[in-house]
Design a protein around this nucleic acid. Structure first.
Lengths: 221, 221
DNA sequence: GCCCCGCATTGATCTAGATCAAAACCGCGC
DNA sequence: GCGCGGTTTTGATCTAGATCAATGCGGGGC
């Protein structure tokens, strides 16, 4: 299996023979842009490890209001909760490839390999920490702070994946960013233009270049 | 150990002899109202299992803005992340008793008992699911919806602890509720009065009686 | 009982961000 | 190149909830 994210992902805790077991369970799947990986409430037959592309994870209210609870990047694992149904929907923003595992086989393997469970638990608590950060952001920060924190967080995530750069790729739409930050698309757009006028950022195709990291880090506090 | 929450808490997965091991590690601590259990960033020497009382868990911004990331009730476990430092601060709202465990001893026990880790992981993913619900609430719901969701969630949590009732105890202040819901104290107060005028709720000392569950459930959707 | 003092409520006003409504942009197929 | 559909930006206006400012209230100490 030519898994590019092995070192940063759940699999990093496994030995060679354990990886072979995992290989037997995995089957790589490609999702074209805009395709749904799974829907909230749907029985979770599979769990996924993203290997390329970006996925949006979101919840919907009956009237259509949407909250994006996260963006999954390569190395991220979907299905941590190990419950019978997915707690959110997921769809591909660009072309996504993922390792899919049948949940029953996967959870049997987890039962036998405590250090795989340990790794999973580390992932879960890391996610929980991020979720609490996001609560602070959603509940108490201004629009400008929200956007700055988002850009810095995306930069850091790409950096951890071996793409450290002051130019941050943003494959998701403005609407996606709005739904992640609890804002409207218009406010996101205006805030981008304001930051660009400030020379804090430079807007480039499908992304942004961070021009004043000091100021941004200061605002993010 | 006279632990009243054993059946609902992490310990529920343990056998009698394992509980004895745990007993040896635990020491029960009482925190009077308003006292701090621990502070964000502080090295996490201990982990805690709440056995009585209510704890507020919060993050602060340098300028004093506060976001409450959760209220811990009896049975709740603080220190899931198992990282070196706490990610949030915690203080007692009323008189709180907790089982404290030294983190090193506790994590050694966890290493030896996979089903304890399993239980911990279940708790963590449950917390994560709640955190994602809270993101939806903070990012996309109106003040009235926020308050109704909060009251229903509190009712359900007390019910799971064996106190099912249409009268929901609210030991925390209005300011605490505001900082949990991403509102100001004035908005919380006004929303309470509006719901009371509606006859959706009845405000009682240190709590609220839910008078129209159907309507509330419908709003929470 | 009465006086505090900290919290909660109520009222008046303000504003960040939402909403409504055009333009401008940007591939992409023909 | 041109037209077209979707996205983004910009502009004008509105409003939910914030802020500012009293006033009310309830429980503990004396």
């Amino acid at each position: 299996m030519a898994c590019k994210v092995r070192l940063v992902s759940v699999c990093a805790s496994l030995s060679v023979d354990e990886l072979e077991l995992l290989d037997a369970l995995a089957h790589e799947t490609v999702f074209p842009a805009r395709e749904t990986l799974f829907t909230q409430g749907q029985p979770a037959h599979s769990v996924y490890n993203i290997t390329a592309g970006v996925v949006r994870l979101y919840k919907l209210l009956p009237d259509g209001r949407r909250q994006i609870v996260g963006f999954a990047l390569p190395g991220d694992f979907l299905g941590l909760a190990m419950r019978d149904a997915f707690g959110f929907s997921a769809d591909a923003i660009d072309t996504v490839t993922a390792c899919a595992f049948s949940r029953s086989a996967y959870s049997a393997l987890v039962d036998e390999k405590p250090h795989l469970l340990r790794r999973l638990h580390q992932f879960a608590t890391h996610e929980l920490t991020l979720a609490q950060e996001q609560m602070m952001l959603l509940g108490r920060r201004t629009a400008e702070e929200k956007l700055i924190c988002f850009l810095l967080a995306m930069q850091e995530r790409w950096a951890k994946l071996g793409k450290p750069s002051v130019t941050v790729p943003l494959p998701m739409s403005r609407q996606d960013i709005a739904d992640f930050l609890g804002l409207t698309i218009e406010t996101v757009s205006r805030t981008f233009t304001k930051l660009a006028k400030d020379k804090t950022i430079l807007i480039v195709p499908d992304g942004v270049r961070l021009m004043n990291l000091d100021h941004m880090a200061h605002v993010a506090a």
